[in-house]
């Protein structure tokens, strides 16, 4: 049986006249990695900060582990690991001192797990936090959020500042958390990040929920931009426009660019391309805005 870990019900948050989150509802189930996707300023951080009881909803409610976030925030936080998008640390400590202090606050052993995570993330625990780069601070933030083995991880833009190698380690850690039956809710404005590890995703735009989808469906519905350069000849447009799922074909500076949908007839497309001497082929991920527009059948 699937347990609901997070339940957001008709959440509305306002900053003065500006409504940051409008009537938002979705649920996160135990043991899943749930992506919360939206462009900057969409209301992701506001929602997560409301979950942590930093700000109070103007309407609706949030339950975490079946507990209203307004009623017993400390009980929830004891079971949650949180990583803020704008992580600021107390710089007069080193990583180990910080984790030892967290052990005292949380009344849980953390150091051994923190040291394991530090090794994976290539982080030096004895090094002072002062003067560390954003990426290094982010690493200790991830370690601090994970080291007490929380039942729920709430991560706001967790991969900011992580290099590609560490991004991969981070993704492996999230998968490890899921395999242990724990839950991850992470926000991102990067579709590829969400695609890589999330099971389901909620897309938010201008404070309103657009959809909650399985990532597999989202990937199918999504599309990529294919950019082709041919050897010694002008880009041939003919024939591409008859292939299913290929649209918006254009040429610029000798490069052929087309939109290839998730359910395009790839076999026909590749065979058609193979008739020509290809010099280069590149894919661009669509922007979130383009995905939104795809969802709503409007032209990009």
């Amino acid at each position: 049986m699937t347990h609901t870990v997070v339940s957001i019900n008709n959440l509305t948050c306002r900053y003065g006249d500006f409504t940051a989150v409008k009537d938002l509802s979705f649920e996160v189930n135990q043991g899943e990695i749930f992506g919360f996707l939206g462009p900057n300023g969409a209301g992701k951080t506001t929602t997560l900060r409301t979950m942590m009881d930093f700000i109070r909803p103007d309407g609706g409610s949030i339950e975490v582990f079946g507990i209203d976030t307004r009623a017993e925030p400390e009980a929830i936080k004891a079971r949650v690991g949180f990583l803020s998008s704008e992580l600021v640390l107390w710089e007069n400590w080193n990583g180990e001192q910080y984790i030892r202090w967290l052990e005292k606050v949380r009344h849980k052993p953390m150091l051994e797990e923190a040291q394991r995570l530090a090794q994976l993330l290539d982080f030096e625990m004895k090094r002072s936090l002062q003067g560390m780069s954003t990426g290094m601070k982010r690493k200790i933030g991830v370690i601090a959020a994970l080291a007490h083995k929380p039942e729920l991880l709430i991560l706001d833009e967790p991969s900011i500042g992580l290099d590609p190698l560490m991004q991969q380690v981070f993704e492996e850690l999230m998968i490890e958390v899921r395999e242990e039956g724990r839950t991850v809710l992470l926000s991102s404005h990067d579709l590829s990040e969400v695609e890589a590890i999330c099971d389901r995703v909620a897309i938010i735009r201008e404070g309103e929920l657009q959809t909650v989808e399985n990532v597999a469906n989202l990937t199918r519905l999504a599309f990529r931009w294919m950019n082709l350069t041919f050897k010694d000849e002008a880009a041939p447009i003919e024939g591409f426009d008859r292939i299913n799922g290929v649209t918006d074909i254009s040429t610029e500076n000798g490069e052929l660019r087309m939109r290839v949908s998730g359910d395009a007839d790839m076999d026909t497309l590749i065979k058609h391309i193979a008739q020509y001497p290809v010099k280069d082929l590149q894919f661009d991920h669509p922007t979130l805005e383009e995905i939104f527009l795809t969802y709503y059948g409007r032209e990009a």
């Binding site: 900060r49 942590m52 400390e74 936080k77 949650v80």
Partner: peptide
């Protein structure tokens, strides 16, 4: 303003 309060209040302290 410096987001240090977020760090504190994300812990199980009132």
């Amino acid at each position: 303003r410096e987001n240090k309060m977020d760090l504190l209040l994300s812990l199980p302290v009132s």
